[in-house]
Amino acid sequence: MAGPEYDSEIKQLTATMHTIEQVLDLPAMKREIEDLGVQVAAPDLWDDQANATRVTGRLSLLQGEVDRFEELRGRIADLELMVEMANEEGDAESLAESEKELGKIKKAVEALEIRTLLSGEYDEREAIVTIRSGAGGVDAADFAEMLMRMYTRWAERNKYPVEVFDVSYAEEAGIKSAEFAIHAPYAYGTLSVEAGTHRLVRISPFDNQGRRQTSFAAVEVVPVLEQTDEIEVDENEIRVDVFRSGGPGGQSVNTTDSAVRLTHIPTGIVVSCQNEKSQLQNKASAMVVLKAKLLAVKKAEEAALKKDLKGDVAASWGDQMRNYVLNPYQIVKDLRTGYESGNPQAVFDGDLDDFLEAGIRWRRGAEKADDN
């Protein structure tokens, strides 16, 4: 890459960063950080644990965002200096290194730009993901487990903690359903574009005649609530069942009835949790998930847009949002955005960022179209 091309690329990155700074309103973020810092320093902060958790969590989130922006702006300034010195000295090796760094910076700026598109009411929250097997028998159960692994691998790549609440294993292979949280800022805004029906086409490993099988799984994504969120649950409207935790193939993993299933009678929403050792802890975790789902329903009803928050999906023909084809050719294609990958194995290993970016941009475009 020649010198003038570097200059043009760096100027474009600088301009994009300026736009991002305006959208994020960095001065306002810094003022809020200063105010939260004063609150954190107060000796009575932890007298109100719910408020203390909210304040410290918000401070950590904002500080991380500002640090991320400032670090990236510093990398662009360093790159500009590196290119200038390499051009003056005719240092081809340094120019080659600069080109590599330019590619990395461009990807980081794109990711930060995507973050500015996550401005929904709950986009900055952590996420609870539910996966259910749909039509397709044992292949659908196996596919549901593949999707769970895909999302947990994506979280691992990004160093995001995953907390599994419940897994219901199928008899022969795979899972009937799974529920887990991804603890990361903006996890809900990022992963909410994954809600919908996913479709897998492959030669079934469970068919002794080696026939091609189509199967489906549904993905639902809801935001994790904070103490300040207003969602009241009447205990009289909840049925509580306790049972023994189980593993794959019906294997017992717990000798006591510590797993908890909550059924919200008015809506029919059912939530289970078996990851904790005590019944009390499992009930508390299940209540977190139940409240998140009830809030999603409430907000969806208010906006008359149930699909946007919760995903009204049947996990069958006609409403799929992404196809995973392993035979007769190899491709993963998002039917909304048109984005596709010819490497399904990489996608199932958690390489989802490009699909997520395309989905977020598509959603923003759809929102703008609705506004007009």
Rank of each mutant, 00 (worst) to 15 (best):
G189C: 03
S192Y: 01
G247P: 03
L356F: 14
E276S: 08
Q320V: 06
R364A: 13
E172L: 10
K310V: 10
E179Y: 05
L295G: 02
T53N: 05
A42W: 11
V193W: 06
P223R: 09
I269Q: 09
S168E: 13
I131K: 04
R361C: 06
V109R: 09
V23F: 02
L335Y: 02
R336V: 11
G338V: 11
T263R: 12
V83T: 11
D207S: 10
I203V: 14
Y324F: 03
G136V: 07
L200S: 01
Y188F: 15
G311I: 02
A111T: 12
T19G: 07
V253E: 07
D354F: 10
N208C: 02
L200G: 02
N282T: 12
E237V: 04
D229E: 12
E126K: 07
R132S: 05
A140Y: 04
A314Q: 12
M150F: 05
R157F: 03
E97A: 08
E101L: 14
V167H: 05
E80D: 14
A346Y: 05
T152K: 11
A218S: 15
I360V: 13
A135T: 14
D370W: 05
Y169K: 03
G247W: 00
T16E: 15
R157N: 10
E171C: 03
L326K: 10
N87S: 14
Y6W: 13
Q22E: 15
